[in-house]
Design a protein around this nucleic acid. Structure first.
Length: 717
DNA sequence: GCGTGTACCTTTTTT
DNA sequence: AGGTACACGC
């Protein structure tokens, strides 16, 4: 028997032992959220609820796996049958069982980002939209707009007006493109990420029997990271719970960071209205971080709008001061980080150290420096290795076995054969599926390699065998094609191919394996133990480390330059920063380079410290500056305890909310003060940086960032 | 129609 | 740095 009273604090205990019905747990960062869910599962099991009648929806597969593992540790036995996974993964599972009627006999395949972008590109070509028009957005961008409209459930025109008003002239074309893209998916038996969720909702609404079946099957629904659900996901939760079901939703409004994908924090704030009779329990005591870390995190939230404000408490006194490290440039920041990581490795294990950043590409200089210094690391976020060309090639073979109509996969494979371009590929695809045997052989005659591929796939489709055997045969078949396509580095790629073959081992159904790889790449945890972590803040969600180093804390990077004009976007960046800081257990270090290399200017440009650093009262951190030798020194500290270097001339301490004037100075430029200004045509704006010798970059809400002669600007506050 | 060379532009976050 | 659009030659 587990001693719940002793293992949990009163709020956690109340949540864990709550009777059925609807329960909302508002769990601050580090407040033992996972612990609460795990004990809840254990408690329910002890109450006689079968694990197979619980469904745990989490944000990532990793989170689900961790909870299941910890729960079975606690219970001392496996939790056979407990279902856990992401919304998307769960949706796929249900949809393959209860297939939407428009699919007919076809098995759907799940598209990844590259497939979606390629499909949009093709639809655009067919429709001849924006031909030769350079102002027409790229496929990736179009994809973002279409998906955002769908997730926020607003029209494409409204989305364009809100997000990128300069594209308003293309709104009608984008709407047309959206219709074509939808038809494309239907024609080829494809589901994109958003389809998974909407199709499941549709299924449950149209087929009461299926909804009833699922409600009976899953007596208890547990949803993690509830603040990041969007409207349709919330409706799905409602459909799965029904009037009388048991739902435990856990979340933290202060950590809502997915509004860009339609997450709707009001799902959580309005939860008690949507589910009458809800019990709300707040977990407010932080067990993760030391006081200096929490003080800084709390200070960040103090400036957030009232709805998001909260204060975390800890009983852990003492702890290392938070450091702000000002390097001279982003390049030297990387060198400084390598030095610092080496120091930290004396007291910490590699997997207890993480470097976090706003966007995946921000870590490139650091990755290079770490590689030079032979410091092993793993990176999360950005391109996944499943998206590497050779992996996608191999998986395309597998996808065509599952779904012969999968056009993106067909195109990928065709492209491996010399002489086969887009037009011919299209013809081959059409004739192959027409069922006209003679015409097919005639068309394929010129491309024997492709014919061979199709023959193999037909054969394999007809003789069912385990995914691992299948993948092995495909890899063997693919190998000469890979050697031809990537003559330089195919041996390296071969390792990735073998990895995929190994991964297939645990699967019984090929389609599930393929879908899982699109939905979330499984852990390849070979040597993660000896590696430090590099991660985007988004991918770091829910994780924690002893030492957390946040880099590139300058305007246009963190906060992202895409989040400058609208207050709600800016506030999401703030919460992102809050999430980043609260990942730290014992040490938190903030890095703010005084200058950043800009590709567009082809020069190192002065950078302005992030507002998230400027806003924090100076007393909450220690400031360190890089000297010319690449060494670092803290201001106002006893030099005896510091590396033996000379001190920088003292600078006035930065006051809370004051605008830093030190960044341009770092480069000997004119100490032009930044702040607010007005312009005759664009109105009030915020000066982002001084552009020597006489201009400013100014962000005008509604107009974007402009570079303007100082003479045309009037200071304002 | 295909493949290559070249000039140009743009870089968020995730399932 | 990498994708994309277009021009050119096969």
């Amino acid at each position: 028997m587990i001693d719940y009273k002793n293992a949990l604090n009163p709020a956690q205990y109340a949540a864990v032992t709550a009777p059925g019905g609807h329960l909302l747990v508002v769990a601050g960062a580090g407040s033992g959220k996972t612990r609460t869910i795990v004990y809840r599962i254990a408690w329910l099991t002890e109450q006689g609820v079968s694990p197979s009648s619980m469904l745990l929806l989490t944000f990532t597969r990793k989170a689900a796996a961790e909870m299941l593992q910890r729960a079975s540790q606690l219970l001392g036995q496996g939790l056979a049958g407990l279902q856990g996974g992401t919304f998307h993964g769960f949706a796929y599972g249900v949809l393959r069982q209860f297939r939407p009627s428009w699919l007919g006999e076809r098995h759907p395949t799940v598209m990844d980002n590259a497939d979606m972008a390629a499909a949009i590109k093709q639809c655009r070509e067919i429709l001849g939209l924006g031909k030769g028009d350079r102002s027409f957005p790229r496929s990736q961008h179009v994809l973002g707009i279409l998906s955002k409209a769908r997730n926020k459930e607003i029209s494409i025109e409204a989305t364009v007006r809100r997000e990128s008003s300069h594209l308003l002239p293309h709104a009608a074309a984008l709407t047309e493109l959206n219709a074509a893209y939808t038809a494309y998916r239907r024609d080829h038996g494809l589901l994109d990420y958003d389809d998974l969720i909407f199709e499941l909702e549709h299924l449950l609404c149209e087929h009461e029997a299926v909804a009833r079946h699922l409600r009976q099957r899953y007596e208890h629904l547990l949803v993690d990271e509830y603040q990041d659900t969007n409207l349709v996901q919330a409706r799905l939760v409602r459909l799965l719970t029904g009037e009388s079901g048991n739902l435990m939703a856990v979340g933290d409004d202060a950590q809502s960071i997915y509004a860009f994908r339609g997450a709707h924090v009001y799902n959580m704030l309005d939860f008690p209205d949507i589910f009458p009779g809800t019990r709300v329990i707040a977990l407010e005591e932080n067990y993760r971080s030391t006081k200096p870390v929490l003080d800084l995190a709390n200070a960040l939230l103090e400036r957030a709008p009232a709805a998001f404000r909260k204060t975390l408490r800890t009983r852990r006194e003492g702890g290392e001061a938070v450091r702000l490290v000002v390097s001279r440039s982003d390049q030297s920041q990387a060198e400084l980080l390598v030095q610092r990581i080496r120091e930290l490795l004396r007291d910490h294990l590699p997997h207890d150290i993480a470097v976090l950043f706003r966007a995946a590409f921000h870590s490139y200089p650091l990755e290079a420096a770490l590689a030079r210094a032979d410091v092993p690391f793993r990176k999360y976020g950005g391109l996944r290795y499943v998206e590497a060309a050779h992996i996608k090639d191999l998986l395309s073979y597998a996808r065509l076995i599952v779904n012969p109509f999968d056009l993106p996969a067909f195109q990928r494979i065709a492209a491996l054969h010399p002489g086969l371009g887009p037009k011919t590929t299209q013809k081959l695809y059409a004739v192959a599926l027409s069922g006209d045997r003679d015409a097919t052989f005639r068309a394929f005659a010129k491309y024997p390699g492709m014919l061979e591929d199709m023959g193999l796939l037909d054969n394999l489709r007809e003789q069912p065998q385990p995914p691992s055997t299948l993948l092995e045969r495909l890899a063997e078949h693919y190998r000469p094609r890979m050697e031809a396509a990537y003559p330089d580095d195919w041996p390296r790629r071969q390792q990735g191919v073998e990895e995929i073959v190994r991964m297939a081992a645990g699967y019984v159904d090929l389609d599930l394996f393929v879908a899982d790889l699109s939905l979330e790449s499984p852990e390849e945890d070979e040597d993660a133990e000896g590696c430090i972590t590099l991660s985007t803040v988004h991918s770091a969600k829910g994780l924690e480390w002893d030492a957390v180093l946040i880099i590139d804390l300058v305007e246009e990077r963190f906060p992202s330059r895409h989040a400058q004009s609208r207050a709600e976007d800016f506030e999401e960046e703030r919460r992102l920063m809050y999430v980043a800081c609260t990942r730290a257990r014992r040490r938190l270090e903030l890095y703010a380079p005084a200058a950043i290399y800009s590709r567009s200017d082809q020069a190192i440009m002065p950078a302005v410290r992030s507002p998230f650093v400027r806003e924090v009262p100076a007393g909450l951190y220690e400031e360190w500056h890089e000297l010319h030798g690449g060494q670092c020194v803290a201001r106002g500290h006893d030099p005896a305890t510091l590396p033996p270097v000379r001190l920088l001339p003292p600078e006035p301490a930065v006051q809370a909310g004051a605008v830093s004037s030190s960044a341009p100075e770092a480069h000997g430029g004119d100490p032009q003060s930044l702040g607010y200004c007005t312009h005759k045509k664009f109105g009030r704006g915020k000066k982002i940086r001084f552009v020597p010798p006489d201009k400013f970059q100014v962000n005008f809400p509604g107009f974007g960032v402009k570079t303007i002669l100082a003479d045309f600007l009037t200071s304002a506050e």
